[in-house]
Amino acid sequence: MELADRAVGFLLSSISLSIFIYYTFWIIISPFVDTDHFIHKYFLPQDYAILVPVSAVFALLSFLAMFIGFVILKSE
């Protein structure tokens, strides 16, 4: 079981690191690169720079609230 836990931890760490690197390049590096450069085809438009994290936080808080509500209802 310890090997499975390590594999899951490594997978989650790798996914988190890759998302962090992608978002950092998208927000900090890409505005300083020319708009006709090929690198811009790998990134979303800058309009989504705030929309994506806000919707992710909203989804996380919604699932957390549903989980807490489910636990409260289950415990009674």
Rank of each mutant, 00 (worst) to 15 (best):
Y22Q: 11
I29H: 05
Y23Q: 10
I50M: 15
Y22T: 12
Y42G: 03
D47C: 07
F43Q: 02
Y23G: 06
I39M: 03
D36E: 11
Y22D: 09
H40D: 03
F25N: 09
Y23P: 00
Q46P: 13
D47E: 15
I21L: 15
D36Q: 11
I50T: 15
Y22A: 10
K41F: 04
I29L: 13
F43L: 06
Q46F: 10
F43S: 02
F43M: 04
Q46T: 15
P45C: 09
S30H: 02
D34F: 03
S30C: 05
T24E: 09
A49H: 03
V33I: 15
P45I: 11
W26T: 00
V33P: 11
I27W: 15
W26E: 00
Y22I: 12
F43A: 05
P45L: 12
I39K: 01
Q46E: 14
P45A: 13
P31M: 03
L51H: 08
L44V: 05
A49E: 09
A49W: 00
P31R: 03
F32Q: 06
Y42M: 09
T24G: 10
A49R: 10
T24N: 10
V33W: 10
Y48D: 07
H40F: 01
Y42C: 06
F25P: 05
P45H: 12
S30T: 12
F25C: 11
H40W: 02
D47M: 12
Y48Q: 13
K41D: 05
